[in-house]
Simulated scan of single mutants.
Amino acid sequence: MSAQPSSSGRRGGRGRGGRGRGGSVNGSRDTGDFSDVQFTVGQQFGPAEIFSAHKHVLGLRSAVFATMFDGSAAADRKNYVDIPDVAPVAFANMLRFLYTDTVDLRTDNVDATMMCADKYEVPLLVEKCWELMSAHLAVDNCLFILENCCIETIVQRCLEFIDKFADNVLASDGVAALGKGTLAKILQRDTLSVKEQNVYLAAEKWALNECTVRKLEPSGAHRRQVLEEVLYLVRFPLMSYAQLAEGPGKSGLLLESEMRDLYQYKFSATKPPLAFSTESRPGHANRIDEPIAGPAYPVAAIIFDHQEKVFVKLTMDAETWVPGEIIGMRERMSELGH
Results as ranks from 00 to 15, higher is better:
residue 138 A to N: 08
residue 311 F to E: 09
residue 155 V to W: 04
residue 270 T to H: 11
residue 58 L to W: 05
residue 337 G to W: 06
residue 195 K to M: 12
residue 308 E to C: 12
residue 106 R to C: 06
residue 332 R to K: 12
residue 44 Q to K: 14
residue 324 G to I: 06
residue 167 D to K: 00
residue 49 E to H: 10
residue 119 K to M: 11
residue 35 S to Q: 08
residue 280 S to C: 06
residue 92 A to F: 01
residue 140 D to C: 03
residue 329 M to E: 14
residue 108 D to T: 12
residue 183 L to F: 00
residue 194 V to A: 02
residue 296 A to W: 04
residue 323 P to I: 13
residue 165 F to T: 05
residue 188 Q to N: 04
residue 109 N to K: 00
residue 239 M to K: 04
residue 270 T to S: 10
residue 234 V to Y: 07
residue 238 L to I: 07
residue 307 Q to W: 13
residue 88 P to W: 09
residue 42 G to P: 01
residue 186 I to P: 02
residue 163 D to F: 00
residue 222 H to K: 14
residue 302 I to R: 04
residue 6 S to L: 13
residue 55 K to N: 07
residue 29 R to I: 09
residue 201 L to R: 11
residue 262 L to Y: 03
residue 17 G to I: 09
residue 118 D to G: 09
residue 97 F to P: 08
residue 103 V to D: 01
residue 87 A to H: 13
residue 212 T to Y: 12
residue 141 N to D: 02
residue 72 S to A: 13
residue 324 G to W: 15
residue 129 C to G: 00
residue 53 A to Q: 02
residue 257 S to D: 15
residue 235 R to I: 00
residue 178 L to R: 03
residue 299 V to I: 15
residue 312 V to N: 01
residue 300 A to L: 05
residue 81 V to Q: 06
residue 24 S to G: 10
residue 296 A to N: 12
residue 125 L to C: 05
residue 208 L to F: 00
residue 320 T to R: 05
residue 276 F to A: 07
residue 146 L to W: 06
residue 63 A to K: 15
residue 66 A to M: 14
residue 246 E to K: 08
residue 102 T to I: 04
residue 14 R to Q: 13
residue 316 M to S: 15
residue 282 P to T: 07
residue 283 G to F: 05
residue 134 S to F: 00
residue 315 T to Q: 13
residue 28 S to Y: 04
residue 302 I to Y: 11
residue 243 Q to E: 15
residue 102 T to G: 05
residue 216 L to Y: 10
residue 35 S to F: 12
residue 155 V to P: 03
residue 127 E to Q: 09
residue 236 F to R: 02
residue 310 V to C: 09
residue 184 A to G: 03
residue 29 R to E: 09
residue 101 D to H: 06
residue 233 L to M: 05
residue 240 S to E: 12
residue 79 N to H: 14
residue 235 R to M: 01
residue 317 D to M: 07
residue 248 P to G: 11
residue 230 V to M: 01
residue 268 S to M: 04
residue 297 Y to W: 11
residue 288 I to H: 10
residue 253 L to T: 09
residue 83 I to G: 03
residue 68 M to V: 05
residue 285 A to N: 07
